[in-house]
Amino acid sequence: MEILKDQSGQGAAEYILLFGGVIVIAIAALLIYRAYFSGNADVNASSDISTVRSSVK
């Protein structure tokens, strides 16, 4: 029963799950914004920047 009480590997498993979740979120964000950064979509960064700059003035 001593093996069941040993929790020395629990921290490593939690870090693996945490980093795995961060990687999944990063990949999902890249897939969502891929068209935005590639310039193939109707929306692109340069037009957004000029729109924001003109609205600030």
Rank of each mutant, 00 (worst) to 15 (best):
M1D: 08
M1I: 11
M1A: 14
E2I: 11
E2R: 13
E2P: 00
K5Q: 13
K5C: 06
D6M: 08
D6F: 06
Q7P: 04
Q7W: 01
Q7I: 04
S8L: 11
S8R: 15
G9L: 09
G9A: 04
Q10T: 01
Q10E: 12
G11E: 10
G11M: 15
G11F: 05
A12C: 03
A12W: 04
A13V: 07
A13Y: 04
A13M: 10
E14W: 03
E14F: 11
E14G: 00
E14N: 02
E14S: 10
E14P: 00
Y15R: 12
Y15N: 06
Y15H: 10
I16R: 13
I16Q: 13
I16Y: 12
I16A: 14
L17V: 06
L17W: 04
L17S: 12
L17C: 02
L18R: 13
F19T: 10
F19C: 06
F19W: 11
F19I: 12
F19Y: 12
G21Y: 02
V22P: 00
V22E: 13
V22C: 10
I23V: 14
V24E: 06
V24H: 06
I25E: 03
I25S: 05
I25M: 10
I25V: 15
A26F: 11
A26D: 07
I27R: 10
I27V: 15
I27K: 15
A28V: 14
A29H: 07
A29V: 05
L30A: 06
L30Q: 08
L31P: 00
L31A: 01
L31W: 06
I32T: 14
I32G: 02
I32K: 15
I32C: 12
Y33P: 00
Y33W: 07
R34N: 10
R34Y: 06
A35N: 06
A35S: 13
Y36D: 02
Y36W: 11
Y36L: 14
Y36I: 03
Y36T: 03
F37W: 14
F37S: 04
S38A: 09
S38E: 13
G39E: 05
G39T: 08
G39V: 04
G39Y: 06
G39R: 08
N40Q: 14
N40E: 08
N40L: 07
N40G: 11
A41G: 02
A41L: 02
A41N: 03
A41R: 10
A41F: 07
D42C: 00
V43S: 08
V43F: 04
V43I: 05
N44Q: 03
N44K: 07
N44V: 01
S46G: 02
S46H: 01
S47Y: 01
S47H: 01
S47G: 02
S47R: 14
S47I: 07
S47M: 11
S47K: 15
S47E: 05
D48C: 03
D48G: 01
D48Q: 08
I49G: 07
I49R: 12
I49W: 01
I49S: 02
T51S: 08
T51Q: 04
T51N: 09
T51V: 04
T51R: 09
T51A: 09
T51K: 09
T51P: 01
V52L: 12
V52P: 00
V52Y: 10
R53I: 12
R53D: 07
R53G: 00
S54R: 12
S54M: 09
S55I: 07
V56A: 04
V56Q: 03
V56H: 06
K57E: 06
K57N: 08
